[in-house]
Structure formats: structure tokens, C-alpha cells
Design a protein around this nucleic acid. Structure first.
Lengths: 231, 231
DNA sequence: AGACCCACTTGATAAATGTCAAGTGATCGA
DNA sequence: TCGATCACTTGACATTTATCAAGTGGGTCT
């Protein structure tokens, strides 16, 4: 791996405070790779050979059962995926594919496990990352079980509004994938967008305009314990 | 806290390998308490004052939004809950109440954070526990998104069958709570039990008899990446 | 420009799930 | 033993969501 990559990765929260020698050891077997869009990176049930770190682009985590498939999460820079599988050395629970052109660092899981048992700062960072991931999935479960699909879409749009800081934004993924992520069919997502029109949501292709933020918020009833992905 | 409790807790995976002095420090502010059934232990959105360890009995984790409530998980001995909130010092995402008479150890979160940054063995144990919790929630999400309610019930029964090692067993919680956990209404749970009769499931009160394990398994299509809560 | 492709949309219909109200049956205390 | 309570069940119905089939409309390639 090139030195410039090594420095870029070094700055990630996960590695920032760890011992230099341990970091070097971790990077020895690691490499960075560029992937085109829609490339399968890993498949569920495989052994966790590498910890993946998304440096740029975005990655879709999804899962299948009995001929059905669902999108579980989108991983954006800069964060890891399949950390839990890596540290426990257990098979992946989800598959991953790039959504767009993406740069991804691959670090041998074996090295992650070896170093994390030696390096206290690294172990702490892993704990923080895992706890964060855990809380994100719990929030997602609450979203799924406590809300209707229309409410889920409304709150999703509010989160995007908050993330971009603008009342106008483009959807960051295909609608079909968004539908799957929100736990509904593409057909119903179309209807759901229509259903939010009365609350001040305008949709044209991938472009969303929120014309009445207050009204939408009143309908969506966002809650930090479900929608605040930073805590 | 009494010495006998301290030894009991010492043997938990989470604490087994940590340094004795650190363990003593952790136990200094800790205590064990007995709770009757149906007692609220914590409420979502509160600051994480204590890490809880279920020593006996069982605890229901649940959450509410906009007047609706859902059961998220059942914690059984010997494991912790709200570990993620404790280590990140962020508000609880879920509430907790005892299902039955339960003995629970409470360890000040502040001490957990202090000790885990000092004690590498403890940090490692926390990582293992968090990773386990994360994977459990991911499995639960897959269950919810990829299966119908009838399939969820069928697989739930198979997991109970596996857990007890017997084709006959009693449900470990009220049906209304089971319904909530499986993401359906009590009324639909009743109908779902009827719907599984053709696949060899007999229900009388809380007692379940599986008369045709093969048939039920063929219908439920259990999958270790969803149903195996030990990995 | 024209033809095609592909995602998305729309409408009709079916299936799954939730709601409401009434009923059943087990349990427990007087 | 009687009655009351409470969880659960049942039936009728409403709502939500999924499915299937037929459009629509960008975008792209030639």
C-alpha cells in the first residue's frame, strides 16, 4: 500500500490513537482498491477475511433469504463494515456491493484481531465503532416496528434534509433500493411519495423539494432515539 | 456488595479475564438487587448511569414511539444490557422491565468506561459482547424484513425447540409480548398459531407441541444467518 | 431523429395485517 | 362454589401492503 493511503487511513477515528508500530503491522497486509459501481464485494456466510473501510463512494449492505432480498444499510465514508464479523471471526451476516465508484481499504481480519488484543487504543476505538453500529441497527429496528411505511419515508426525507442542510436535495440511491431499505416495494414507494404531497413534499425524478418543513415534521414526528444517526 | 455475589459475577465472560485490582475497582460502586416481575428498570432516553447484568430471571427490552410500543428483545442470564449506551455515554435507546422475579447487578457506567480504557482483557470482552449484540440485532432485522409473520412465528418455535432440546415446551413469555416481539398484534398471533397447525404445531395455552418437526422445518426454512443466536 | 431500454409509475386486484367488538375459558379470591 | 378478572380468541371489517400487468417517460445508442 502506498504511503499516502497509509496516512489517509491513519487519520480515521478507528486508527488515530493506536501505537505506530501496531499501525504499521496492521497496514502490512492491507491494501486499497478502487471498485466500479455495482460490484459485489462480499457475500453473506463467507468467512470474514478482511475488514473493509470505505474511503470514498458508498456501499450497500444487503441480505437475502428464500428468494427475497432486502437492503439493510448504506455505508458512507469514512466507516468500516463487517467489523463485528471480523473481530468475532464469524461468517458475514450481510452481503455488500458498491453503489457507486468506491475506494475501499481491505485489512486482513486476522491482523485486526491480533493487533486489537495488543493495542488498548485500538480496542477502545473498536468498542466505540461497534457500539455506534449496534445503536444504528437498534434505531432501524424501531423505525421498522413502530412506524408505517409512509412515516418511515417521511422521516427518511427529514434525515436527508438534515444531512444536506437544504430543503432541496437529490436522492442518494435508486428508488428501488430506497424502497427495499425502507421495507417496502418500489410500487408502494411511488404511492408513498404521492401520499406525502399534502405534507409539502415535491418529487421530480430523483430531486426532492420540501415545501413545508413544519407540516412534514408534524406528520413525521422525528425522534432522536430513532432518527439521529450520530448518537 | 457481598463477596458471594462478587465471585458469581467474576465468572461471567465479560469479567473473567480482567485484572483482579480492576475488577475490585469495578465492584466497589456496584450492587446486586432483586426485582419482582413487571418492574420498570430503565427508561429510554435516560442517561446510562448503570451497566445492568441479568444474573437470574429475565428482562424485556422495549421501546415506544407516538403512542405505540414494541418489544425488542429478551435478556436472559447471564448477559448484560445497555452496554452500548454505557460505553458511549449516550442515552438509552430502549426501556427495560423485568418479566419475572430477577436478580440484577448494577455497575456504574462511569466505572465501566474508566476501567475498560485501562484493562485490555476487559476491553476485549466488551468488544466480544458488543459484536454479539450487534449480530443479534442484524439477525432480528433480517427476520423482520425478509419473512412474513407466519414464517417468523414458525422459526421462533423452531428456535425454542432447539433451545429446549424438546418437541414440547412452554412459551417463556405472555403471548401478547411474543406478538409484539415478532412484530404483530396479539390477534394475529392467535391466527398464526392456527395457521401453523397444518405443519404440525399444537398449542394449548402456553404449551406447545411440535408433532411434525420435518414439516414445520420445511415450511420455516430456518437459516443460521438469521436464527442461530449463538453465532 | 428514431428506436430501444430501463427504471419508475399507475391501476386493478389480492393478500397480509390491523382494528374493533364480542365471546371464551382459565385462574383466583371471597 | 360462585363470580370477577384478565388474557386470549374469534369474527367481521378496515387498512395497509404486495402483486401483476400495463403504461409512461427519461436517457442512450446508432
Amino acid at each position: 500500500m502506498s504511503e499516502s493511503y497509509k496516512e489517509e487511513i491513519r487519520d480515521l477515528t478507528l486508527f488515530a490513537n493506536m501505537d505506530e508500530a501496531n499501525y504499521r503491522a496492521l497496514m502490512r497486509g492491507a491494501y486499497v482498491q478502487n471498485f466500479p459501481p455495482r460490484i459485489d464485494l462480499i457475500h453473506e456466510n463467507e468467512p470474514p477475511d478482511f475488514l473493509h473501510v470505505v474511503l470514498s463512494g458508498s456501499v450497500d449492505l444487503f441480505s437475502a433469504w428464500n428468494g427475497r432480498e432486502t437492503s439493510m444499510a448504506t455505508v458512507r465514508p469514512v466507516s468500516t463494515f463487517i467489523l463485528a464479523a471480523s473481530v468475532r471471526n464469524l461468517p458475514y451476516l450481510m452481503s455488500a456491493r458498491t453503489l457507486e465508484k468506491s475506494r475501499i481499504a481491505l485489512i486482513p481480519s486476522q491482523d485486526v484481531r491480533a493487533v486489537f488484543s495488543e493495542d488498548s487504543a485500538f480496542a477502545q476505538a473498536i468498542v466505540a465503532e461497534l457500539a455506534q453500529c449496534y445503536r444504528a441497527v437498534v434505531k432501524n429496528t424501531k423505525d421498522l416496528k413502530l412506524r408505517t411505511s409512509l412515516e418511515r419515508l417521511a422521516n427518511y426525507l427529514l434525515r436527508q434534509q438534515d444531512r444536506t442542510g437544504s430543503l432541496e436535495f437529490d436522492l442518494t440511491m435508486e428508488k428501488r433500493r430506497l424502497a427495499s431499505f425502507l421495507g417496502m416495494t418500489p410500487e408502494n414507494l411511488s404511492r408513498a411519495f404521492k401520499g406525502l404531497e399534502p405534507y409539502g413534499v415535491k418529487v421530480a425524478q430523483n430531486h426532492i423539494v420540501i415545501t413545508d418543513l413544519e407540516d412534514l415534521t408534524r406528520y413525521a414526528k422525528p425522534n432522536p432515539l430513532i432518527d439521529d444517526y450520530s448518537a
